[in-house]
């Protein structure tokens, strides 16, 4: 429970953070809320030699309307995402899912950018923003670029971010009035989902994201395709595992996880169709 030795530097701006990571290279890590990184460090599963603290880049903490999108700064705490009136009106699925991350302490410290950059398939927000067709904005030494969520998650805990890039913004499309549902199945309120489903439906379109159903967050495109093709909710839900490749662990076998994904997708679609 004592991390290995590391150095600590605090960045005062995104530019400085990026230059610091360039300076310290592969052995350095950004730290924002620290709620994914610190536990790994305490177990010595992660041993970065330098932590670059971006936790005070308050100019990256915002939620604002930008045309038909809502832009969320990467340093925005889960608590602020959960309670945002803008999101509650235009993207309630995201606000609601943020309210299911960890427990209140975690939601006060953890950030949306940290959660997405960590790319944990068992986290709630990667799959939720993926289902919503979000765009992530990364900043590197040569400026900013946009990455569609569907192209972002490469493998377990690996994203498209280059070593000297920092996630700075998450953009989600407005879904005002769409039906939505977030089904998080776990044993204790504060746990990661055994399986989670984020879903929305609107005017014949839909999106379904699966939490903890593979090495990356899963976009269940087959479900949406089935719905577009006129399938019933329960028939479409049977397609939930087409893209997934879940693992077994203490809480679930592969078979059970697949079964849960179908049940929860059906329930999510039913709720989103109400």
């Amino acid at each position: 429970m004592i991390p290995a030795q590391f150095d600590y530097v605090r960045a005062e701006s995104a530019e400085e953070a990026i230059s610091l990571v360039g300076q310290h290279g592969d052995e350095s890590k950004f730290i924002a809320g620290g709620h994914s990184l610190l536990p790994l460090m305490k177990l010595r599963l992660a041993q970065p030699s330098v932590l670059i603290d971006i936790g005070r880049l308050t100019d990256l903490s915002y939620i604002r309307e930008e045309g038909d999108q809502i832009a969320i700064g990467a340093l925005t705490r889960h608590m602020d995402v959960e309670n945002s009136t803008l999101l509650t009106e235009h993207a309630p699925l995201l606000a609601h899912a943020a309210g299911h991350v960890g427990d209140p302490q975690v939601r006060h410290r953890g950030t949306i950018g940290g959660s997405i950059a960590h790319a944990d398939p068992a986290s709630d927000l990667p799959a939720t923003t993926l289902a919503m067709g979000a765009t992530y904005v990364a900043q590197g030494p040569n400026g900013r670029r946009e990455i569609p969520a569907a192209d972002f998650y490469k493998s377990f805990l690996e994203s498209d971010l280059a070593a000297d890039e920092m996630l700075v913004e998450i953009r989600v499309p407005k879904m005002t009035g769409a039906g939505w549902s977030f089904q998080k199945f776990n044993r204790r309120a504060q746990d990661w989902a055994i399986v989670g489903v984020a879903a929305w439906r609107s005017n014949g379109s839909s999106g379904v994201g699966l939490v903890n159903m593979g090495s990356v967050p899963i976009l269940a495109s087959s479900v949406s395709a089935a719905l577009s093709g006129g399938a019933s909710v329960s028939d479409a839900a049977e397609q939930a595992t087409a893209e997934s490749d879940p693992q077994s662990d203490l809480n679930a076998s592969v078979e059970y996880r697949k079964h849960l994904a179908k049940v929860l997708t059906r329930r999510a679609l039913e709720q989103a169709s109400e």
């Binding site: 427990d103 044993r187 204790r188 309120a189 746990d191 990661w192």
Partner: peptide, 16 residues
């Protein structure tokens, strides 16, 4: 021991 942390050893919390 697979359940060696409080993430895997499920002590119920007040909300449970």
């Amino acid at each position: 021991l697979l359940s060696s942390s409080l993430a895997e050893y499920l002590v119920p919390a007040a909300s449970d």
